[in-house]
Simulated assay, not measured.
Amino acid sequence: MTKRKPLSTVVADSLREKISSGELQPGIQLPTEAELGAQYDVSRTVVREAVARLRSEGLVVPHQGRGMFVNEAPVPRTFSIPDEALRTLPETIALLELRLSVEVEAAGLCAERRTEAEADNIRALMEQVDARHDDPSAIQIHYDYDFHLAIAKATRNEFIYAFLAYLRPIIVPRFQLGHVVATDVKEVYYARIHAEHRAIVDAIGKQDGRAARRAMRAHLANSLERVRALALAAGIDATDVDQQAAAAALFAELKRPPRAEG
């Protein structure tokens, strides 16, 4: 079953299309909140959220005391991920593929460029994150994202760090670890992830860019493999219950030794 878009997204999409098509010309004033609410049969809160989204995109601008107007200046297209995205297994898989392509190189650059203080900080952060062993039902699947951000920051490439930092508030709250890790294999799962993290950190400590890239690729590829397997087991349109049942059967493989990286 396809999830319905939030009402604020529906309204924002409609207004965006009217601006793009020229129905709402540059410089024209938007209808009032009350008028938009009546037009779309939604509350003023929904209208405010929709207009705020358009404002953040630079499509509309406020004129003090007069209201909101369509921006007269051309607005360059920017990369964005819709709020309703990344809530299901297929979008989570797409995200992991994107992260893998960026973070493999980030790990190598980090190893080659990091300071001793940064290497120490990355190791300390890994130990802190990996020591928690939280209940999978109460933690997000990307619980180690701060560890990955610390690696990105030490690349000395502001665009890599800014891109991954941009993704953080979008992806971290979306998907609970409990959807992909059964409670009875929790400890084994955390031990596996710690081993993968440690391989990355050790390579960074040795300033071995090739090994760091290889270890990061193994870490994210293993995560991608696990989530892809869950998608196949549970089905694209599976409910949370379906996904958790599939996870319980699927993650018995965690009791086997980790896959060796070639």
Rank of each mutant, 00 (worst) to 15 (best):
K206W: 07
V60M: 14
Q176S: 12
Q39S: 12
E112Y: 05
T239L: 11
A246M: 10
F159A: 15
H133P: 02
Q244S: 07
R55F: 11
V129F: 01
I236R: 11
A247P: 12
Y40P: 10
A131P: 07
A12C: 06
Q243P: 05
S223M: 13
V201N: 09
F163E: 13
A182S: 10
I170F: 09
H179N: 11
V42L: 00
P258T: 02
M68S: 06
G209E: 14
L149Y: 03
G22N: 04
A107M: 02
K255E: 15
G209V: 05
I160E: 11
G209W: 04
R210G: 15
H194G: 12
Y143P: 04
Q176V: 06
R44Y: 03
R113P: 08
I81W: 01
S137W: 01
K255C: 09
A34D: 13
R44H: 10
E84F: 04
A12L: 04
L230I: 06
G108M: 00
I93W: 01
L220A: 09
S101K: 08
D130N: 07
L109I: 00
F159K: 13
A73T: 15
D202S: 03
R198G: 08
E17N: 15
A119Q: 09
F147T: 06
T155M: 06
R174T: 06
A94I: 12
I160F: 08
R226T: 12
K153G: 06
H133E: 00
T183S: 11
G27R: 05
Q39R: 02
A107W: 00
A106H: 04
T78D: 11
V46G: 05
L98W: 06
E112H: 10
A215L: 03
H194A: 04
F159T: 10
S56H: 12
A221H: 01
E253V: 10
Y40D: 13
A162T: 05
A238D: 13
A248Y: 14
H194W: 03
R123F: 06
